[in-house]
Nucleic acid binder design. Structure first.
Lengths: 235, 235
DNA sequence: GTATGCGCAACTGCATGCAATTTCGGCTGG
DNA sequence: CCAGCCGAAATTGCATGCAGTTGCGCATAC
C-alpha cells in the first residue's frame, strides 16, 4: 500500500494542502478493508500485526483503532484487544430500520428542497439505471445504485443527516450478502426507485418517504443479514 | 444479560468495560466538560496541559482526543492541535433539523411499539412535569425533560436510533442557550409534550411525529443557537 | 478421562524521548 | 508605521520501552 519509510526526497506525493496523519490513513485503510469484506466481522485486530503490515509503530495504530471504535466499525474490549464489530442480529435489524428511516427522511426533504437541476440529475440517473437493469448489468447497477442513494442524501440539503445515513450504511456494509442477486430483483429495485423518483419529482414528501421504506423493506431480504461466523485470526 | 445502567454509555453501544482505560475515562471527562459548558466551543485543547491536569501522560490524552474527534465533539486539525467543535450556524441548523427528524421517527415508532407499561410511564412523567411547570420549577423541569425525551428514545424499541438521537443532542448541547427561559415557555413546552403524549397513547404515529416536529421547532428559537466567540485558551 | 492449579508467552496500557512542523517574538527594510 | 522575514520556543506526530494483565498450555491431582 502506501510505502513511505521516512526516506529523503519526496516528502508526500499526495495533497500538500491537508496532509493526513498516519492514524487517519490507517483508519481509512482498515475501514475500507472491513467494508469490503477483507476483514470479516469478529476478526481480531492485533496492534503489532497491523503496525508491521502498514510499516508503522503501534502508536498510530492504536489511535486509528480508537477512531474506528468510535465510528462503530470495530469493538474494543479493554486489555482484550479489538475485533471487527459483529452486532447481534437484533441490532442489525435495528440499524437497518434506522437506515430506512434516515433515507425516508432524506427523500421527504428532497421532495421539498430539490431544485430543477437536481431533480433532472436524479431522473437521469434513474433512467440510466433502467437501461442497466434491462441489460442485466448487475455490477454496474450496484455501483450506480450507490450513486443514486448518494443523490438522495445530497438532495436533502442536510449534510449532517447525510453523514448519519452514510455512516449507518457503512456499518451495515460488512453484512450485506449478495444483494441484487437476480435480474428479477434488479427490475424490482428499479421499479421501486421509480416510485421514489416520481414522488420526489411531484414534490410529495410523504409518498417519497413511503416509497423509500418500501424499497428498503424489499431490499432487506436481499441483504441476507448474515449471522456471522465464529471469531477468526487476522490474515 | 447483565445490564448496568449506572455507567453512561459514552460512545459505544454497550459498555463491557468493567475497568475502563485512562483514555476512555478522559474522553468522558472532557466530553462532560464540553457539554456542560466548562470548555467553550473554539477552545484549544493542548495535550500536555490536559495530561498534566488529569495526571497522566500524553498518550492516553491523544487517544481520548481521537475518540472525541470521531464523536464530533472536537475537531482535530493535523499538526495544529484540537479545538472544541464550533460548527457554523448553517450546520447547527442542520443538526437541529436532523435531531427533530430523529425524535419524530422515535415518537412515530413509540406510537406503534410502546406497551401498556411504557405508555403509563410516559404519561406519569408527563403528568409530573405538568406539576413542575405549574410550580415554575425550571431546573427540575429541565432535568425531567431530558428523561422525557429519553423515554421517547427508549420506547421506540430501536437502540441504534436512540444512540443517533442522543449523540446529536450531545453535540448540540454546548450551543443550547438558556432554554425554557420563562414560565410561559415552560407551559408551552408542557402543552407541546401533551400533544406528543396524546398521539402516542392513541397509537397515531404520524400525529406523534408531527407533534414532535412542532415541539422542536418551537424549542429551536429558545435554544438560541449561539454563534460562538473567538477561540480562547483553555483554563 | 476430567477438573484444577501453575507458569509462561503474548498482548495491551501507558510513559518517555526524539524529530518535524507550526507559531510567535523580534528584526530589518520599505 | 506597516509588511515581510528569520530564528527560537512551543506543540504535535511517532517510535520505543517497560509494567500489568489476560489467556493458554501443561503438568498434576482426583
Amino acid at each position: 500500500m502506501d510505502e513511505r519509510p521516512d526516506s529523503p526526497g519526496a516528502t508526500t506525493p499526495d495533497t500538500p494542502a491537508r496532509r493526513p496523519t498516519r492514524a487517519e490513513t490507517l483508519a481509512e485503510a482498515i475501514a475500507a478493508a472491513i467494508t469490503e469484506g477483507r476483514l470479516a466481522p469478529g476478526m481480531a485486530l492485533e496492534e503489532e500485526r497491523l503496525a508491521a503490515l502498514h510499516g508503522v509503530s503501534r502508536t498510530p495504530v492504536r489511535e486509528a483503532l480508537r477512531l474506528l471504535a468510535a465510528t462503530g466499525l470495530i469493538e474494543q474490549r479493554p486489555r482484550r484487544g479489538a475485533v471487527v464489530a459483529r452486532p447481534e442480529p437484533a441490532r442489525l435489524a435495528e440499524m437497518f430500520q434506522a437506515m430506512a428511516e434516515l433515507e425516508a427522511v432524506c427523500a421527504s426533504l428532497c421532495a421539498a428542497a430539490m431544485g430543477r437541476a437536481e431533480k433532472a440529475a436524479l431522473y437521469a440517473r434513474h433512467a440510466a439505471m433502467g437501461r442497466l437493469a434491462r441489460d442485466g448489468a448487475v455490477d454496474a447497477y450496484r455501483d450506480a445504485n450507490v450513486g443514486f442513494h448518494d443523490l438522495l442524501y445530497a438532495g436533502a440539503g442536510n449534510r449532517y443527516l447525510a453523514e448519519l445515513a452514510e455512516t449507518t450504511r457503512r456499518r451495515l456494509a460488512p453484512f450485506r450478502a449478495a444483494q441484487l442477486g437476480g435480474p428479477d430483483r434488479l427490475a424490482a429495485s428499479h421499479a421501486e426507485h421509480g416510485a421514489i423518483v416520481t414522488a420526489i419529482l411531484a414534490g410529495d414528501g410523504p409518498a417519497a418517504a413511503a416509497a423509500v421504506r418500501a424499497h428498503l423493506a424489499a431490499t432487506e431480504g436481499a441483504w441476507g443479514l448474515m449471522a456471522g461466523q465464529p471469531p477468526a485470526r487476522m490474515g
